[in-house]
């Protein structure tokens, strides 16, 4: 008998074939790429910049290191990493979506960030890099869109150097019921309307809200990272648990 759970996955609240999810997610991000930064600022009231700052702090990145900014989108973290690692270091901005990568590349070049940044279109489940290659890996608001998260975590572990760390910044589960209710109302009533008004794309932002709810909560993701082989895994809730930053090491 065929095990159906091995063949299907979530796309928001819908159940779709695993093979189909990649193209569906690609469709969402092709659609939102041009307005991605504006929408992030509007939807989060600019707080996403503070969440990313915290990710940068937890990364411990220093001069001369090699960093992978996975699902790096429009390059917010890459810009900061590039300045810290300097000309002796290297930052790889990787994203599965070509439209996002193009927006990110244009934005960083306009900011004068060139020389130590490389752009790679890559699937997180099968990273095209050698073993033990990066000092740190970040994936910010990207893991929930990956079809096989366990496989992606194992792939990240493989390309991370011993002593290196992985940081996963992702929407998570609010700690308090009241906040959870307010957040639900905002996500399913306000967010899609804003997506419709600003990006002319209500459906993509409906998917965003649904994909956040389907993403593993703090403890589940911690366990997934440990199962993949990461050690000393910890997480830090931000803004009441709306977002969580998980950190794990490879030894």
């Amino acid at each position: 008998m065929k095990d159906n759970s091995q063949e299907t996955t979530h796309f928001g609240y819908k159940t779709v074939d695993k093979a189909q999810k990649k193209s569906l997610v690609a469709g969402v991000f092709d659609s939102v790429a041009a307005k991605y930064d504006v929408m992030n600022d509007v939807m989060s009231f600019g707080i996403h910049r503070l969440w990313k700052r915290q990710t940068l702090d937890a990364s411990g990145v220093r001069k001369g290191q090699r960093i992978l900014d996975l699902a790096g989108g429009t390059g917010d973290l890459t810009a900061k990493f590039s300045r810290i690692v300097g000309p002796q270091g290297q930052v790889v901005l990787a994203d599965i979506n070509d439209s996002m990568l193009k927006v990110g590349r244009d934005k960083l070049r306009d900011m004068g960030i060139v020389g130590n940044v490389e752009y790679v279109q890559a699937n997180a489940e099968e990273l095209p890099f050698p073993d033990d290659h990066f000092d740190a890996i970040t994936i910010a608001f990207g893991l929930r869109n990956v079809t096989d998260k366990d496989k992606a975590l194992r792939s990240m572990l493989r390309v991370l150097k011993p002593g290196g760390r992985l940081l996963v910044l992702e929407f998570s589960k609010p700690e308090h019921d009241v906040l959870n209710s307010l957040y639900d109302f905002y996500s399913f009533n306000v967010l899609p309307q804003m997506g419709g008004l600003i990006a002319n794309d209500k459906e993509s932002y409906q998917y965003l809200a649904e994909s956040i709810r389907m993403h593993p909560d703090q403890e589940t993701l911690k366990q997934m990272m440990e199962d993949a082989g990461f050690e000393q895994v910890t997480y830090q809730n931000m803004t009441g648990g709306i977002v969580a930053l998980h950190r794990g090491f490879k030894f």
């Binding site: 915290q54 940068l56 702090d57 937890a58 411990g60 990145v61 220093r62 900061k80 300045r83 810290i84």
Partner: peptide
């Protein structure tokens, strides 16, 4: 100059 948080350990 980048201002880092107190968690930055390098």
């Amino acid at each position: 100059v980048l201002f880092m948080g107190s968690d930055y350990d390098a």
